[in-house]
């Protein structure tokens, strides 16, 4: 198969290597990757590696195995880039970066209409407590069934709802691609207990450090550029 090499593309980045994998069965791609690495082990040894896995769905076991095997070869995996939300989530769970620079989104100028649809409809459902060091970035709404601990971060293009205690940092209405024009000032944050270390809606920042703890579920939104807090009343 002469397409073998085209399945794995290696590029130099400013601070390491980027390997892009083509489509195919994960275990075959993985084997192919290590074959290439072992052929030129001195070139790869000590490298900082970012991996673009495309649409591949990877679980924690896949990524930890990959990272450990790379680490055996003195290669440190620092980023996994993917178009698949599941894989991105896995990588974030393991503390790996999921974007290598601003370059990528600029290269691919996505049609704006498609993006708005995503913001409206895509909800990321997180059914666990987000511990310190976890960062979730999502081009849509985020719902957390659990706590958001100090040191955890959520950045969402849409709204964030925390069914638990919010004690970390949240940014709603963010433009994930970093264009201020696309920010959403209508976005809001809801939590059962609201004591975030930092809260941002679009480009407005509220530092609530030392603020009073609300024992009731609240919703925080922007009204005429001012933060307003509403107590949730089911009646």
């Amino acid at each position: 198969m002469n397409s073998k090499n085209s399945l794995i593309q290696i590029k130099g980045l400013r601070d390491g290597l980027l390997i892009s994998l083509g489509e195919g069965e994960w275990h075959e791609l993985e084997a192919l990757l290590f074959e290439q690495i072992d052929e030129r082990s001195s070139f790869f040894s000590g490298a900082r590696l970012a991996l673009d896995v495309g649409k591949q769905v990877l679980r924690v076991v896949n990524l930890t195995k990959l990272r450990d095997e790379l680490s055996e070869r003195s290669i440190s995996l620092w980023a996994v880039v993917s178009d698949e939300p599941k894989t991105v989530q896995t990588a974030q769970l393991l503390g790996l970066a999921t974007r290598i620079s601003k370059q990528r989104p600029q290269e691919v100028a996505r049609p704006k209409a498609a993006k708005d649809v995503e913001k409206e409809e895509v909800v990321l459902w997180v059914e666990r407590t987000l511990r310190s060091g976890t960062r979730i970035e999502h081009n849509g709404h985020v719902v957390v069934m659990g706590d958001v601990n100090p040191g955890a971060e959520i950045v969402a293009a849409g709204n964030i709802l925390v069914w638990g205690r919010l004690r970390g940092s949240v940014h709603v209405g963010a433009d994930i691609e970093g264009q201020p024009a696309d920010e959403n000032t209508d976005a809001f944050v809801c939590a059962l207990t609201m004591t975030p270390t930092r809260l941002q809606i679009a480009s407005e920042i509220e530092n609530r450090v030392g603020g009073k703890t609300s024992q009731k579920a609240v919703k925080i939104s922007l009204k005429n550029g001012e933060f307003q807090t509403e107590v949730w009343n089911a009646k």
Partner: peptide, 19 residues
């Protein structure tokens, strides 16, 4: 201590992620 607890929280997160 707050700093130690936050680091412990991070470590617990990693342990959970690594199953």
């Amino acid at each position: 201590e707050i700093s130690a607890v936050r680091d412990a929280d991070r470590v617990i997160g990693i342990l959970e992620a690594e199953e």
